[in-house]
Design a protein around this nucleic acid. Structure first.
Lengths: 294, 294
DNA sequence: ATCATGGATCAGGTTTTCTGATCCTAGAGG
DNA sequence: CCTCTAGGATCAGAAAACCTGATCCATGAT
């Protein structure tokens, strides 16, 4: 791959686009003479004129036209990609599951934004499945300790994920023993039914099928269904604190709490970006918030 | 379009491709330090590292990988196009219709080639229709005076194109008057039947339908069909001199010669390349050949 | 523990590039 | 027909970018 002098290519491309050397000179903040020289250099390199010169300016030759179309396209791609990279490097890209986003992060994120007005924060909540988490590019993400990842990862534990059944007071009134829940609709945060299955592994309630009931796309919707009196949700105490405090949801068996086998909730990030200023600022803010609420 | 320093891009691209600065330094004929500096400059410009450094070299970061794929592709296109332009500028590209090529140019072209061993000659004969002539890129082409062209054209007349019927002696023996040709198969150089139509416009032979007979893709094949005794071809005397001299073809009505309404055969070329050394050398050689044979 | 590899850094020198003035050409306008 | 003007070409001197070559540094291999 033998490339002509890159600066000459850029000067020529600008000249071709402006159909004149003066416009190119303005764009590149140099003088006409510099453009003239660059173009000449490139023409010498290629052994053929790229412009035909007249008294009133220049017009592209066939070779010049061909070269310009390639250059304009190529430079456009490069400019697009470099600006994308620069933007991504400047912004803080956060990835966070739906329930965590809507019930925990978003209400607190305004505080971070106002403390860091120079940092643009981009939150992605709309991703699907486990693959999505690895496929999307982000700086930090909210996940769990036992997440298996391919890329080297840095991690910061945030809080426990206590699982406990929750429902409306009217349903709770019908539940005198844990096995009574078999008669209610179980609400699942996903088709996998892992929430109730994990809990049942810990407590082995007789007669309770942990895969029965209704499945939702995420925990937020399952919890909202519970508030509407649809059934019993396997609640994450951290994420339904509001409903518990307001009395919209109650815990019929408050001692039957188990920690998610996936481990604590935590912030994860790429090992190479973990110590960049923008990520460190977020980590420090997050640490303070969690410590203040614990 | 805000482009990072082009030289830094090139240095980075080479480093990324070689997965190390030393390889890139060799490729670009500079020292490691220069590459290191360029990469650092680019990283500063983008605000993010493109390589992660370890003791044993470097590996691309995600941003680096993304940038490299764009750059390698873009530089590849640029390199391909520039080398194509340079090659086209160095070579002499001739376009010439089939019969003219095979019957006139090729036998003489070896002489030009041996006189100009430094000049690579590329002959294109396989083009189709009138559009093709304008669409193909070439330095000089063999055509006729009355060619209507869009691009500004320089022109050098070469010789007349005398049209006259020709056939084998055995067919000629059956032709006592021009109108007898109506009983023979007329051989056409193309589906347009222009050769016989033009000739008939000049001589108005009674009973002769100038669109009757067999059509061939070019005059060479029509002439060869005539030699095989298939019929009467509207011969170009310049191009079937061999057959006339050997007696394979004869002219039953040697006085009924008319010049092609398209004008003389001539060499054409782009106004902008007409005076380049390679085209001038060809023009001068061609002028000598035509003068010597006239 | 030592070596080898590969990158980072820096002062100094070289090359490239830019500037700013001036020249040149051909079409526009009188 | 002459002058004017827009836009490119050219050149010497100045500025900037760039490269070199030596040296330093970190780490994995022997």
């Amino acid at each position: 791959m033998r490339l002509p002098p890159p600066n000459a290519l850029r000067a020529f491309e600008a000249a071709a686009r402006h159909e004149g050397f003066i416009g190119a000179a303005d764009e590149l903040h140099v003088t006409r003479g510099a453009i003239s020289r660059h173009v000449k250099l490139l023409e010498d390199h290629l052994g053929t004129p790229l412009f035909s010169r007249h008294a009133k300016g220049v017009t592209l030759t066939e070779a010049g036209r061909r070269l310009q179309s390639v250059l304009t396209d190529a430079f456009g791609r490069i400019a697009a990609e470099t600006s994308r990279i620069a933007t991504d490097a400047a912004d803080l890209r956060i990835i966070c599951p739906p329930a965590m986003s809507i019930r925990w992060l978003l209400p607190r994120l305004d505080d971070f934004r106002s403390r860091n007005p120079d940092l643009r924060v981009r939150l992605t909540t709309d991703f699907h499945g486990r693959d999505g988490f690895d496929a999307i590019e982000y700086d930090v993400g909210f996940s769990v300790e036992n997440w298996s990842r391919t890329a080297p990862t840095a991690m910061m534990p945030l809080f426990d994920i206590p699982l406990v059944p929750a429902c409306t007071p009217s349903i709770a009134a019908r539940l005198s023993a844990p096995s009574d829940m078999a008669g209610e609709t179980l609400l699942h945060e996903s088709e996998s039914h892992r929430d109730w299955t994990d809990w049942q592994t810990a407590f082995a309630v007789p007669g309770l099928d942990p895969t029965a009931g209704d499945a939702f796309p995420n925990l937020d919707m399952a919890t909202r269904a519970a508030v509407m009196g649809t059934g019993v949700v396997m609640a994450d105490l951290t994420l339904c604190r509001d409903e518990i405090e307001s009395g919209a949801l109650v815990l019929p068996f408050p001692d039957m709490v188990t920690a998610s086998p996936m481990g604590r909730g935590c912030l994860i990030g790429g090992a190479d970006t973990w110590d960049t200023p923008k990520v460190r600022r977020f980590r420090e803010w997050l640490g303070e918030v969690v410590a203040a609420e614990a």
